[in-house]
Amino acid sequence: MDYAIQQVLNALSFGAEYALLALGLAIVFSIMGLVNFAHGEIIAAGGYSMFAITSLLTGNPFVVIVGALLVAVLASVLLERVAFRPVRYADASTGLLTAFGVSMILQNLFLLLVSPRPIAITNLYFLNWPIEVAGVQISTLQVFETVTTAIAICLLVVFLKKSSFGIAMRAASLDFEMVRLMGIRANRVVAVAFAVSGLLAGLACIFIMARRGSVDPTFGFNPVLKAFVACVLGGFGSLPGAVLGGFLLGAIEVGMLVLLPQSYGGMKEAFVFGIVALILVWRPDGILSPAVEKGDKL
């Protein structure tokens, strides 16, 4: 029983991390059709900013966390201005390849300017300590992660449903040009989408860092790869799909950890991706693929 509860928590916390990242990807994609491969480097930027703040300013974890969130948001918005604006109205593959290029540049900049080796950042370890609840050993980090993700998702829903800007963003995911015809500034919609995306990446960064305790140039790569898979699983561009895909992927991963014999540990990824491919054979557009909507063309 203990074991089962622990594994469920494991799945939830993995799923939460993927859901945060997948949501960030999906928000940007739904509005401007961009598959942002550089999302992982936003996470890494958050990680490196923790290092910078710790070594230059203070090790106070609160400052470090807020600083990392800020840096992630700024980096995300900045990338849009510099790299993605010229290809905003280009076709999907142009945007995708641009994002690739950006990702390569950033990874190698980290390598060149900081170090190719991992850098330890240990002041977030305090988030992660074991506690006993009703006789079951669990880690606080997993609880934090799940709860924070739940809160973030709720806030996002409220923002999208209630604020006028949120409504505009939902409209933009249906028909961006029509939103501009309503006088809403395209640049602002896109900037907010990237800011939200960066904020979610920053949150994920904090939890990944609390678990891993070090950052290297390819820090964000694996998490974002998973987030992509989560997006595709849920249906690319669908926000509920991103959340669903994230948690589903978390469950599949933990399921693999539990089911696969120890000697196949290294093959976990292969099995996970294989299952995902099978799901896609069943539903090529993902589980909750969004309706392609351009109004009612006659």
């Binding site: 939902r170 409209a171 249906l174 028909d175 029509m178 309706a291 909507e293 109004g295 009612d296 006659l298």
Partner: peptide, 11 residues
């Protein structure tokens, strides 16, 4: 008010 109406159908 464009041709084909283009209302935001999910809103």
């Amino acid at each position: 008010a464009p041709e084909g109406r283009r209302i935001f159908s999910n809103l």
